[in-house]
Simulated assay, not measured.
Amino acid sequence: MLYQLRNAGFTLVELIIVIVLLSIMSIATFSYLGFGAQIFSDVVGRDQLISQSRFAVERLTRELRNSLPGSARVINNNRCLELLPIHASSSYLELPQPGQTNADFVAVPPDNYSQGVNYEGTYLFVYANSEQRIYNSTTQRKVISGVTEQDSTLIFDYNTTPTLFPLQSPAQRYFISTGPVSWCLEATGEIAGQQQLVRITGYPLANSPDLAHGDAQRAVMASDLYNNIEGGQLPFFTIAATLQRANLVEIDLRFARRQGAEPFIIHHEVHIPNVP
């Protein structure tokens, strides 16, 4: 018996139908995977944005609480917050004042003092509890030129004119600061309206600070900010201390993702202890 052999296979229509079905399944699968990847990317992005904002606000809060009373002020067209961090502090025993001759500034060493520490070039403050007395006057601050140890006390030398302090501190306290620090909102120049929070150090103490000074050091503390300063969304606001309350600083930072999308606001208040 003779058998006729026939080649088994698929027709062109069958192949087209299979290809179309596989294409539909592939599109659905990749769309599902892409949607999941997008969700993961959004969650990670939001978490990073929130983490960096919390870090920046916590860092700024700690610096404000350790700043010289009355030193927090808003500068640079409401874009910057300037302060003087406290490097050391303690009580004094003798304060050179008008009517005294050859009087020394005799003080109790700070808690963090160690023998041979160099305070040269730092700022010495006594009862400088206002912006005028801190930034625009040398009567309540001096530039330390040397320190002498004598009988468990410190004698501070300085060459600032005038050499006398016109006012006593009610608590007989003195403060030492290494120099000013500014936190500023600056445009990134990449996306319209996008800003970053920058910490600036290493510039001289002055009534009108030079934040672009050649020795100034800048560090980006947070990005993706969209404060509309011209529209009244000021990042910093200060209220001077009174007898009833401490110095108050209000922080209003507005973060967002993808050019203003998914915005969230951090509004925070910091009370600075007023112990001049």
Rank of each mutant, 00 (worst) to 15 (best):
K142W: 08
T148W: 00
V74H: 05
N274V: 01
V275F: 13
Y135F: 14
D104Q: 15
P204A: 08
E149Y: 06
Y174T: 06
V249F: 00
E262L: 06
C184I: 09
I27Y: 12
T148F: 01
R218G: 03
L60T: 10
P162K: 09
Q168K: 13
Y32P: 00
P209C: 09
R257M: 12
V43A: 14
N129E: 07
L49S: 09
S177L: 09
V126T: 09
V147K: 03
Y119Q: 02
V18I: 15
A37W: 12
H213L: 03
D215Q: 14
R73E: 04
T139I: 07
I266W: 02
G45I: 07
G34A: 13
R54D: 11
P69R: 02
Y203I: 12
Q38V: 05
T138N: 11
T242D: 08
C184R: 09
F236W: 09
Y135W: 13
L253G: 07
Y113M: 07
T201N: 04
L5A: 10
Q100Y: 08
N76F: 11
A246P: 01
P180W: 05
I24V: 15
M25E: 04
P170A: 10
S208M: 05
I24S: 12
G189S: 07
I191L: 12
E63G: 11
D104I: 02
D215H: 12
F105P: 00
V270Q: 01
Q217H: 12
S182W: 06
V44H: 08
S182R: 09
N7R: 15
A246W: 08
G146T: 00
F35K: 11
N228V: 08
R173I: 13
V108T: 14
F125S: 03
P276I: 07
V18N: 09
Y127S: 05
T11L: 08
V108R: 13
V181T: 15
A72L: 03
V13A: 12
I176G: 01
E120K: 15
Y3E: 04
T188D: 06
V126N: 07
V270D: 00
E82L: 13
R79V: 02
L83Q: 00
S177C: 10
P273R: 11
I229K: 06
I134F: 02
V220C: 02
K142R: 14
R133N: 04
L167S: 12
E149K: 08
R133A: 06
Y113G: 02
D151S: 14
D224F: 09
N274T: 14
E250Q: 12
P85V: 04
Q259I: 08
Y123A: 03
P69H: 02
P109R: 10
N247I: 01
V13H: 08
Q52T: 14
V147S: 04
Y119C: 03
I86S: 03
H268N: 09
T163K: 10
N207F: 08
S177E: 03
R258L: 14
A28L: 13
G9Q: 08
R65D: 00
L60H: 02
G121K: 07
D215R: 10
T148P: 01
F264M: 03
V270L: 01
L253M: 11
F30I: 15
L154Y: 05
Q38T: 12
I251M: 06
P166V: 07
N247F: 07
E262P: 00
E131K: 10
V108N: 14
L154D: 01
Q150L: 14
V198D: 11
L60R: 03
D111T: 08
A103P: 04
Y158I: 06
F30T: 14
A216E: 11
I17G: 04
S67V: 02
I134D: 00
P235V: 04
Y3N: 04
